[in-house]
Design a protein around this nucleic acid. Structure first.
Length: 493
RNA sequence: CGGGGUGUAGUUCAGUUGGCUAGAACGCUACAUUCGGGAUGUAGAGGUCGCACGUUCGAGUCGUGUCACCCCGACCA
């Protein structure tokens, strides 16, 4: 009756994904690869992310809309660096019809149904949205325009990785248009901060945020900003990005507005997004060897009630547990409290199942509890157990959930700090990256030669230049030239 | 796209120098006994050995091709 345990996380992150996603196992010989199936429990997590992030997005003034998944090839190729950045990972639709094959043994593409112009399956929606924006925007009165879209995205990556770089993923992409660069820069910063606070308040994650280097920026942007989280294995994972697009797209899509002074002008644009990868980060950050650990603010199920009964006391305990369940249901939203009265599983199996799924709190109800009109509450994050009076369970539970949320965040913060290393020499940097990894804080002159060398020597790339890294006098970790920017480097997913 | 590895039951894998009716564990189904940390017993279901071609009297096993997956590169907000 030994404990089986799931595979140690250090060996295989995918053990944590079992209840959340699985590899799409499509028909044999199918060239659709690297896709995921999001399971109901995983989708419930995504819905909680959507719900809360969507609220923050709307608070920024953006409105939700939906644009086509198909982008005419000609749109796509208008912005030179944009197309260069995405060209190698696009799925392209060339035909619109199938026909029965000559030998009657199957279906084949009907060559007579070839599209005049190929359609690109969106790898991001800048181009198709901005073509429309050019017709929506005429006057300064039409600005700022703030549009958000929840959609699926396809990027035919050479190498996929379950959850972190799948061929198809879900995301939210925001696109805004402003009169001045000052205004669009403010938007870029605010949306970056939105992702940082979302990570903190909902995902219970501490991140570094700042400007990306020129080599890491979005294809077509002036500047890209990102939020970077640190995983338990010392690798960085980007949570969200925010781009200052300048007037690059406005010029090629001919988005113009007549300003108050009567002049036709190109507006300034931004785009920003966060994807299902965020769930990957969430899971990889908090989980332990017993499975997922979900922050209460994002967990689909906040607490599970487990009656523990024997044959001779079953009815009594079940009816007591049910009254506890009803009490709690009146204080929580539908589905947030679960009553697990399955009698074909042993208690141990149930404990294990809910632990694996990361339900923040388990409420045990057995002989002792029923007698004293109490409940035993067990926290998923630290395993702490205590008795709570039935009468105050609802209030207590809310406090406990709040406490778990806060402690998970503090733990994440501690992890980020302990995995961040300010280095003074290139040797030190190489040694750390060869060992446990983590974030390296180091002065860098900003030239691409030094960045390339770091990448070649350590496989780490620059992650971002945080606010705190500006105006830090020092010498470039590689070439030794005096410089005043302290960048963050890390190996990343 | 280059280098390495792997495809056998739902899952993880074993399968000898090519040889007889294809193996285990877990999971699944039924019944009974259980139930405060991953239960036990009995019975049962479950396979075109990734796919194609080849070598052979005979292929899960050897060869070629192909497809998919994993790792490392290249690539990648």
């Amino acid at each position: 009756m030994g404990k089986k345990g799931i595979t140690k996380r250090s060996e295989d992150y995918s053990q944590w994904y079992l209840d959340v996603i699985e590899r799409a196992d499509l028909a044999e010989n199918s060239s659709v690869r690297g896709c995921m199936v999001i399971k109901p429990y995983g989708y419930a997590i995504w819905e909680n992310i959507q719900k809360n992030l969507d609220r923050m997005i709307k608070e920024s003034g953006a409105k939700n809309a939906y644009f086509p998944i198909f982008i005419p090839k000609s749109f796509f190729s208008k912005e030179a660096s944009h197309v260069k950045g995405f060209a190698k990972e696009c799925a392209v639709v060339t035909h619109y019809r199938l026909k029965e094959s000559e030998d009657g043994k199957g279906i084949e593409v009907d060559d007579s149904a070839k599209l005049e112009e190929e359609l690109v399956v969106r790898p991001t929606s800048e181009t198709i949205m901005y073509d429309t924006f050019s017709r929506w925007i005429n006057s300064w009165r039409d600005l700022p325009l703030k549009i958000n879209q929840w959609a699926n995205i396809v990027r035919w990556e050479k190498r996929t990785r379950l959850f972190l770089r799948t061929s198809e993923f879900l995301w939210q992409e925001g696109h805004t248009v402003h009169m001045t660069h000052e205004e669009s820069e403010k938007e870029v910063a605010e949306r970056l901060n939105m992702y940082v606070s979302f990570a903190k308040e909902y995902l219970a994650m501490e991140v570094y945020s700042g400007r990306k280097s020129q080599s890491e920026k979005f294809a077509g942007a002036l500047d890209t900003y990102g939020a970077e989280a640190m995983m338990q294995d010392g690798k960085a994972l980007q949570l969200g990005t925010s781009h200052d697009l300048g007037q690059n797209f406005a010029k090629v899509f001919n988005i113009q507005f007549v300003d108050k002074d009567g002049q036709r002008k190109y507006p300034w644009q931004t785009s920003w997004g966060a994807s299902t990868r965020m769930m990957g980060a969430l899971i990889m950050t908090h989980s332990d060897d017993n499975g997922l650990v979900l922050p209460p603010n994002i967990a689909p199920v906040k607490a599970v009630i487990l009656p523990i009964c024997k044959n001779d006391n079953r009815e009594r305990i079940l009816s007591y547990a049910e009254s506890v369940y009803k009490d709690l249901c009146s204080e929580f939203n539908a589905g947030e409290i679960l009553f697990d009265d399955r009698d074909y599983l042993t208690v141990g199996e149930k404990f294990n199942e809910w632990e694996k799924k990361g339900v923040p709190v388990r409420i045990e109800i057995g002989e002792k509890e029923a007698e004293k009109s109490m409940c035993q509450v067990v926290r998923r994050d630290d395993g702490e157990k205590f008795f709570v009076d039935k009468g105050i369970l609802g209030i207590e539970l809310k406090n406990i959930l709040k406490d778990i949320q806060e402690e998970l965040y503090q733990k994440s913060k501690k992890n980020l700090v302990s995995k961040s290393h300010r280095v003074e020499s290139y040797e030190e940097m190489k040694n750390i990256l060869k060992g446990d990894g983590g974030f390296i804080l180091a002065n860098w002159c900003g030239c691409s030669e030094c960045e390339e060398k770091i990448k070649y020597d350590t496989k780490a790339t620059s992650r971002c230049l945080p606010l705190s890294g500006m105006n830090k006098e020092g010498r470039c970790i590689v070439c030794g030239k005096p410089c005043r920017e302290e960048w963050i480097f890390a190996k990343s997913y």
